[in-house]
Amino acid sequence: MPDIGFNTLVVLLGATALGIAAGTVGTFMVLRRRALVSDALSHATLPGLALGFLAGVALGIEGRSLPMLLLGAAVTGVLAVLAIQAIARWTRLPEDAAIGAVLSVFFGVGVVLLSVVQGLPTAGAAGLKTFLFGQTAAMSAAEATALAALAVVAAAAVGVLFKELRLVAFDEGFARVQGWPAGRIDLMLMGLVTLVTVIGLQTVGLVLIIALLITPAAAARFWTERLERMTGIAAGIGGLSGGIGAALSAALPDMPAGAVIVLVATTFFLASLLFGTARGLIALRIRRGRMRHTLLDGVGP
């Protein structure tokens, strides 16, 4: 085992916390069928990053200021989600068309702004590109600690609102009849997704954060028929993917951390697809075989 520095260790823990939060929040995004909305949200953070950088320069902050960048990212990400909701609500366009349109407009504007920013003679502008695919090496221990704390907050919020999130995800109409503000509960979920996306920008990057939100939850579904366990398993797979991925990328310095983390998560997904005890392909095959056996061959004298 190579000697890892304190900084790397903190970054690993941060990536683990991020994965736990992404798995927890992602479970409800998958069940609420909002996976694509979160993809639009994460792509729409790009113009916000550039604007946050420009705002920092205007305010006289030297180099890149992480809070400014992440604030800008959150603002444009939320704007994109609101734009999707407005289009789906006030026009008769289907939601996927609204998502496609909004995602490409925001990302396009982001790419343009990014080239503008990179043309500026300001220090740190080139560093913005690391937000596309993630780069843990750029993180300081202080930043990683702060982001990890936010990730814990996001995961804990899901724990507190578990009952409400489950109700709205399963049967929104029934929730409304009982007087639950389904719109506001959805908004809280989108808020948590925004939080996870923004704190994951440095580690995983905006292009691939969707995978860390969706893959652990999708993998967890193969192991259980209960939401409580599914959320826990998704948190575990997300945390392991974040930790293992960040460690691998620290060992292979030229690898973007985001891509490695996502590949680890995908490995977990494939294993779950095959070996999952509730819905995995092998479990299904065995159950079918057993049923055939009891129904057809088991007819004794």
């Binding site: 009952k163 489950r166 109700l167 029934f174 009982q178 579904r221 259980t224």
Partner: peptide
């Protein structure tokens, strides 16, 4: 969606959430 990962009791308990 009847594929949703909840048990019959979980669904009935939703009647008590209010």
């Amino acid at each position: 969606d009847w594929e949703f990962p909840v048990s019959a009791l979980d669904v009935v308990a939703m009647g008590r959430y209010g």
